[in-house]
Simulated assay, not measured.
Amino acid sequence: MNQISLSSVGWQSWLIGALVLALLWLHAAIVVPFALAVVLAYVLRPMVIRLQAWRLPQGLAIGLCLLLVALVAAVLVVLLVPIVSELVPMLRSQLPDLLAQVWTDLAPRLKAMGLQVPDSADEWRSQLTRLLQEHVPQWSGALWHSVVVGGGNVLTVMGLGILVPMLAFYVMADWASLTARARALLPQTWRTSSDELLREIDDIMGQYLRGQLLVMLILAVYYSVGLAVAGFSLALPIGVFTGLAVCIPYIGFGLGLVLALLAGVLQFAATDAGWAYPLIAVGLVYGIGQFVESFLLTPRLVGERIGLHPLGVILALMLFGQWLGFWGLLIALPCTALLTIMGRRGLQAWQGSRLYLGD
């Protein structure tokens, strides 16, 4: 394997690279659509090649792949509609009574501990009902604005939804020429090593993406069936949403868990099943699902090819989330995998250099 000698690389190349990275960092908001388009084009490229092998024109093959992505996004939106449309009214109507029941159970214990609590739940229950009726739309709108939009607005998300597929179309259409031009920009001494690096990245990222997609589909079926067996009325949308959301490590699973708990409590707490049944059911379904994902599916299907420690995964999610908001969470692990490979190659080059060996 050819390795890059640091002495063979002029300081001008490193300076130019540092300046380019600094400019990209300062204009991250502009770069994000292009970065997402490149990622989308990279993910869809094998499918485009397969469709072209079936004698479909390149433009039609790319259009069909982008249409498939649009359909998947529409399915996710459709899944969220029944969750929001059913849970919000249930939350608004049942939460005061549920909290009153909790207050009734806890009030004697709190008084026994010497704490001052209201004598009647009717007054604060009516206040809570009025508060929910007045402010739930504001709170839900603010939550959606802060979590999904990541500091922007709905028009920004809609704009990205149109701009990113359009950019991805052009990237996929000119993939060969773009990669050839990018390779031509590299110094001659870098090209052999860069080709090896890109082949390694392509192999690892391809296996990771295919394995992650299979894990998502299996978990979507599992959570839907598990919640349906438990009798949840929103089993299908919550189960499918949880399975697809596991592409965002920890956060996707946690969001699905919260939605399942909330739906279960609102559905069963007022019945003879009480509070215990939804808590136990969700705990069993999601506990088994997390165990299967962590110890069976991910090691075997994904193969842990990224090679990151769990602390590294959390750090990557926090950093990319801070830098790019919600979209940063989506690309955190693939970008971290790429940076890990490049860092490992750079370390090997440094350790094989004459400067490191003291020659």
Results as ranks from 00 to 15, higher is better:
Leu56Pro: 05
Val225Glu: 06
Ser120Phe: 11
Met158Glu: 10
Trp144Thr: 14
Cys65Ala: 09
Pro82Lys: 01
Leu110Asn: 02
Leu261Met: 13
Trp175Phe: 07
Leu143Ile: 15
Ser8Thr: 09
Met113Val: 09
Met1Trp: 09
Leu347Pro: 00
Ile306Glu: 12
Arg92Tyr: 04
Ser224Asp: 02
Leu259Thr: 10
Ala41Val: 10
Glu293Ile: 13
Ala180Ser: 14
Leu197Ala: 12
Leu98Gly: 10
Met158Lys: 00
Leu197Asp: 13
Gly283Thr: 13
Pro299Asn: 03
Gly321Tyr: 11
Ala41His: 04
Val154Ala: 10
Ala184Gly: 13
Val147Met: 11
Gly114Thr: 04
Phe326Asn: 07
Thr340Asn: 11
Leu308Asp: 12
Gln94His: 05
Leu259His: 02
Tyr170Phe: 15
Thr340Ala: 11
Glu304Gly: 13
Leu128Gly: 07
Gly303Ser: 04
Leu110Thr: 07
Ala220Asn: 14
Ala35Phe: 04
Val48Trp: 01
Val285Thr: 07
Pro249Cys: 06
Leu44Lys: 00
Leu80Met: 15
Gly114Gln: 03
His309Gln: 06
Leu257Thr: 13
Gly358Ala: 12
Gly226Val: 10
Gln12Val: 14
Phe326Gly: 08
Leu217Lys: 00
Trp275Tyr: 15
Trp54Gly: 09
Ala35Trp: 04
Val38Ser: 03
Leu338Gly: 08
Leu60Cys: 07
Leu76Asp: 07
Phe320Val: 01
Val102Thr: 10
Gln101Met: 12
Val302Thr: 09
Ile248Phe: 11
Leu6Met: 08
Ala316Tyr: 05
Gly10Gln: 09
Ile218Phe: 11
Leu80Thr: 14
Met342Ile: 14
Gly358Gln: 10
Gly287Pro: 05
Thr104Leu: 13
Gly283Gln: 07
Gln133Cys: 04
Ile162Glu: 07
Met172Gln: 02
Cys65Gly: 01
Trp190Leu: 15
Ala276Arg: 08
Met318Phe: 15
Ile306Thr: 12
Leu355Tyr: 04
Leu21Phe: 14
His27Trp: 11
Gln188Pro: 01
Val117Trp: 08
Leu347Ser: 06
Leu44Phe: 04
Val84Phe: 13
Leu355Trp: 09
Ser294Leu: 13
Gly151Tyr: 05
Gly206Cys: 09
Gln133Ile: 06
Trp11Lys: 10
Leu197Gln: 03
Gly17Glu: 11
Leu234Pro: 04
Ser93Ala: 14
Gly59Met: 05
Ala29Trp: 09
Gly274Leu: 14
Val9Pro: 02
Val164Thr: 01
Leu214Ile: 15
Pro89Tyr: 05
His27Glu: 15
Leu79Glu: 11
Phe326Arg: 00
Leu60Ser: 09
Asp203Leu: 13
His135Gly: 02
Pro96Lys: 00
Thr179Pro: 00
Leu6His: 05
Leu131Ser: 12
Gly150Val: 01
Arg305Gln: 03
Arg345Trp: 09
Ile248Thr: 07
Glu196Ile: 08
Ile49His: 04
Pro46Cys: 08
Glu196Trp: 00
Arg50Asp: 14
Val240Glu: 09
Val31Cys: 09
Leu329Pro: 06
Leu324Cys: 03
Ala228His: 05
Trp175Ile: 14
Val136His: 04
Leu36Arg: 01
Gly274Pro: 10
Val38Ala: 14
Arg199Gly: 13
Asp195Gly: 10
Gln290Cys: 01
Glu304Leu: 03
Leu115Phe: 12
Gly141Asn: 12
Gly114Tyr: 02
Arg125Ile: 03
